[in-house]
Amino acid sequence: MLKFRINDIDVEAEPGWTVLETAREYGIEIPTLCFHEAVQASGACRLCMVELREGDWTKLVASCVYPAKDGLNVYTESERITNVRRWIFEMLLSECPASQEIRDMAAKYGVTSTRFAIKDPEQDCIMCGLCTRVCAEVVGVHAIATQSRGVYKRIGSPFMKPNEACVACGSCVSVCPTGAMARRIDLVRGKMEENQTNAA
């Protein structure tokens, strides 16, 4: 058993647990976007940053991938963390203005407006990569992936064409935190018939 502290509360963890997992076990909330229990953590969204303190020395780490260690002193809310979160939310608000989920979550952390210009009002994908990880790790087919890099990064099937590898299971839609995948899935699985639902 590893013993450490989160927000001055004594916690215990098994080797191999992450700080986030331990915190959740103790009911301590840490926001996440790119984390999902079904897939390996990637530590990409940086909302789950927590501060480690030791005397004067402090450091921010992503709790979803930071392994629990003996004697850690973890804080889940601090000025430094708030600064990181605030800017991420502000940037996401301007980057993916179409996502209600992001607006709600940002508001929960006190960010309701953004200083940045909105680029594409229709954009709702936050590039968390959950869909691609689920497709690869859970479904095992790699029908979608990220393309390009940096600001040009996009999610989709190869060449943005319907992909035969897609088994149309919809796992990517289920895992998507913003609903962006729901609007893209038809580009991956190919066209559906017009009458999508009717009772017999």
């Binding site: 990637s42 530590g43 990409a44 969204c45 940086r46 909302l47 990181v84 800017w87 991420i88 940037m91 996401l92 980057e95 936050i126 590039m127 990569g129 990220t146 390009s148 890099r149 940096g150 600001v151 040009y152 990064k153």
Partner: peptide, 11 residues
């Protein structure tokens, strides 16, 4: 040159 994985760097 950012790979675009994490939000702070990408955005």
């Amino acid at each position: 040159e950012s790979c675009g994985k994490c939000n702070p760097c990408r955005l």
